[in-house]
Simulated scan of single mutants.
Amino acid sequence: MKDPAHILVVDDDDRIRDLLKRFLAREGYRVTTASDAASARRMLSSMAFDLAILDVMMPGEDGLSLLAGMREGKQKDTPVMLLTARDQASDRIAGLKTGADDYLPKPFEPEELALRCAAILRRSQKDTPPEEVEMSGLVFNAARGELREGDKRIRLTDAELQLLTVLAAKAGEPVDREDLAALTSAGMERSVDVQVTRLRRKIEPNPREPIHIQTVRGIGYRLMPD
């Protein structure tokens, strides 16, 4: 059985802290609380968390500063939701720029917070993509940026390597052409199509009838390994 997600709640308001601990525990989460950033930092240094919920407006060090510290420390990849009494665009933008995954203004409904927590945890706990992808005798290793056929290394341009890396990370799933353009140096959807055509010539047994880099009509492309 999978262990429950461990959530850190940091808020100087005793009532909110207690409410969140009781509500999230009833939802099946393991919950640890801290009343200020200093206590939270000590906990973050000694425990691992799957999600941190930080109040922005706290006396002393605020939630944005704590978040910035997390993004530079060993829990830099821990998802963070910010809570604040100020629902201003500038606050939201500052939080997201600092690395927050979500933002919820006070007052809030506990049910909405729980739903947002579940969504963040689903996104962060996706299976790790395979280290290597095999395609008709070829092996692509994204970590090394290598496409090989046995001992022979097949040369990829930077654009081809970027495209193949993005597709391999979501092997079996369709990837939107717009996302491919944004995540690679292609820049435009039309350029993505050109790179796909070139990449197929290096990967597909028959580039005119591709079996590995498949076109998903109306969406984009999908990499199908062996």
Rank of each mutant, 00 (worst) to 15 (best):
T84S: 14
S136G: 10
R41D: 14
V175F: 10
D3S: 12
L164K: 01
T165G: 11
L20N: 07
G69F: 03
S35K: 11
L180T: 00
G60K: 07
R208L: 12
A171K: 14
D62W: 01
V133P: 01
E146N: 06
L19W: 03
L163I: 01
E149F: 12
K106T: 09
P4M: 04
Q162N: 11
F140V: 04
F140T: 00
R92I: 05
D101I: 09
T184C: 01
L44Q: 02
V216L: 01
S45F: 07
P110T: 11
N141S: 05
V196W: 02
L64E: 01
R116W: 09
D151S: 14
M70P: 03
E134I: 13
E61A: 12
R200W: 11
R92P: 02
N141Q: 05
I219A: 12
P105V: 03
D101Q: 12
R201Q: 15
A186E: 08
L115S: 14
R123T: 11
A118R: 05
P205L: 07
L164T: 04
P205Y: 09
R22N: 15
D226S: 03
H6W: 06
K97E: 15
R190N: 10
R17N: 13
G187L: 01
V31Y: 11
R92H: 10
A159N: 15
C117G: 10
S90V: 15
L20I: 03
P129A: 10
L121S: 03
A48H: 07
T157D: 09
V80F: 08
V175T: 12
K21I: 12
D226P: 01
Q88R: 15
K21G: 06
A68C: 10
V192Q: 00
M135Y: 08
A25N: 14
D36L: 08
D50L: 00
E61C: 12
M43Q: 13
M43D: 11
G150Q: 07
G137D: 03
P105L: 05
T197A: 13
R30F: 05
D14W: 08
D87R: 09
F108K: 03
C117W: 05
K106I: 06
K170G: 05
I53C: 00
R86D: 06
A142K: 06
G172R: 13
R86P: 04
P225L: 08
